Simulated scan of single mutants.
Amino acid sequence: MKGRNMTRWRDPAKDPRQQPKSNLITAEGAQRLRGILDHLARVKRPALSAKVGEAAAQGDRSENADYTYNKKELGRVLGRIRYLTKRLDELQVVDRLPADTGKVFFGAFVELEDDNGETLSLRIVGHDETDTRKRWISVDAPLAQALLGKAVDDDVTVAAPGGQQEYIVTAVHYAPIT
C-alpha cells in the first residue's frame, strides 16, 4: 500500500491507541461538550451552509475557492457534530463524590511529591476532558491508574519513559458537586 497518507506499521496488540478508552466524564466536562455541540449545530453549521449557498450561486464551482473552502469546512463541522452526538450518548457522567473522599478516585485533585521534593498537582478526569495546561490527566493514563485507590502518605511508583518514578501522595480533594 503506497500513498501520502501511509504511516509506519504498528502491531495492534502493542499499540496503546488501540486500547479501549473509559467512558467516564465529569458533569462539567459533559456540560462543556454539550455546549460545543450546541454551538456547532446552532451557529456554525447554519452560517457555513449560508456561505456555501452564496458561493454556489456565483456560478462555476470548480474555480470558486470560497465555495471549496466553505464546503470542506462544512463537512468538517458536520463530522464533528456526528462524533460529539455519538460520544455524548456513550459517556457515563460521574456526578457524585465517592464514598471515601480521602482516597483517589475519578475526579480527584491530587498533589504529589517526588524524590526531589518537587510538587506535582493534577486532576484525574475522563479521556475527553484532558488538558495539559491545567494538568488534568486521563483516568486511562499510567499515572492515574497507579494513583487510583491511594490515600494521603501512600507511595506511588509509575513506569515512565525515563525509568521508574516514585511519588508520595500529599493531598487529595474533590470539587464540590453542584
Rank of each mutant, 00 (worst) to 15 (best):
N5V: 09
N5Y: 10
M6E: 10
R8K: 15
R8T: 14
P12W: 05
P12I: 03
K14P: 00
P16A: 02
P16D: 03
Q18W: 00
P20F: 04
P20M: 05
I25N: 03
T26E: 05
R32D: 02
I36Y: 07
L40D: 01
R42V: 06
P46M: 05
A47Y: 10
A47D: 08
L48Q: 05
S49F: 04
E54R: 09
A65E: 15
D66F: 08
L74I: 04
V77G: 00
G79L: 04
R80W: 02
I81D: 04
Y83I: 01
D89I: 03
E90S: 08
L97N: 10
P98H: 06
D100V: 08
D100Y: 06
F105N: 09
F106V: 01
G107H: 10
A108D: 05
A108H: 13
V110K: 11
D114H: 06
N116S: 14
E118Y: 13
E118G: 04
T119A: 13
S121K: 15
S121D: 09
L122A: 00
V125L: 12
V125R: 09
H127L: 08
T130S: 06
T130N: 05
D131M: 03
R133F: 10
V139N: 11
A141E: 11
P142E: 12
A144T: 02
A144E: 04
Q145R: 15
A146V: 00
L148Y: 11
G149I: 05
D154Y: 05
A159S: 13
A159P: 03
Q165S: 14
Q165F: 15
Y167H: 05
A171I: 09
V172L: 08
H173T: 02
Y174G: 01
Y174T: 00
T178R: 15
